[in-house]
């Protein structure tokens, strides 16, 4: 009983000190807002720079501040439990959704205009005969294969959940 009370007291003190001392002072944030990240807004003929809430809270990931102590999530190897149970139609929606996969930024997808050319073309993906597990790992965290990969680690960084990645794998494997 006494131990648990001490633990609660200690954890409260520690979590407070963690927030106040670890938070860099040069981040463009409004700590009281739900969505903490701010974006600059230039007002014509004014000496003041205004800030508006950004559509996403980006404080969960490291910034470029010299004082930022937030660690980068380390590369993760994952196992895929078969069966895949992915929905290829939902997968295609995720591949094109701005706040989800948005694969078109880097990859050419069938039937879509203005593709990126930074990533490999994913037309006729099925011909490569990649295993589901390999494709799943590539989307979840491509750093497992190549530490210099510039593909965002969608699973490790919490951008897509497991089922969403399964849907994407199903979509890619359906491209004849």
């Amino acid at each position: 009983m006494r131990i648990s009370r001490v633990m609660v007291w200690l954890s409260a003190v520690f979590s407070m000190s963690a927030v106040s001392s670890e938070w860099p002072t040069d981040l463009a944030v409004s700590p009281s807002a739900v969505n903490m990240t701010l974006q600059p807004k230039v007002v014509v003929n004014s000496g003041r720079l205004e800030w508006a809430p950004f559509k996403r809270d980006l404080t969960r990931w490291p910034s470029l501040s010299h004082a930022d102590k937030q660690p980068t999530p380390k590369p993760r190897k994952v196992m895929l439990e078969e069966p895949l149970n992915g929905d290829p139609i939902r997968g295609r929606e995720l591949a094109l959704a701005r706040e989800k996969g948005y694969c078109i930024v880097c990859h050419e997808l069938p039937g879509e205009a203005w593709p990126g050319t930074v990533g490999a073309r994913v037309l006729n993906f099925k011909q490569h005969n990649y295993s589901n597990e390999l494709v799943f790992q590539q989307i979840f965290d491509s750093r497992a294969f190549n530490p210099n990969s510039v593909m965002p680690p969608y699973g490790t960084f919490g951008i897509l959940n497991e089922q969403e990645i399964r849907d994407l794998v199903a979509y890619l494997q359906s491209l004849d």
Partner: peptide, 27 residues
């Protein structure tokens, strides 16, 4: 309207979904 180089960095950061910093920050 008018963008300084450091505000351009903030725009780059936001486009790449990185928490931007304040102008005049050391980084």
């Amino acid at each position: 309207q008018l963008q300084s180089l450091q505000l351009r960095f903030a725009e780059c950061n936001l486009d790449a979904r990185t928490q931007p910093l304040l102008p005049s920050s050391r980084a």
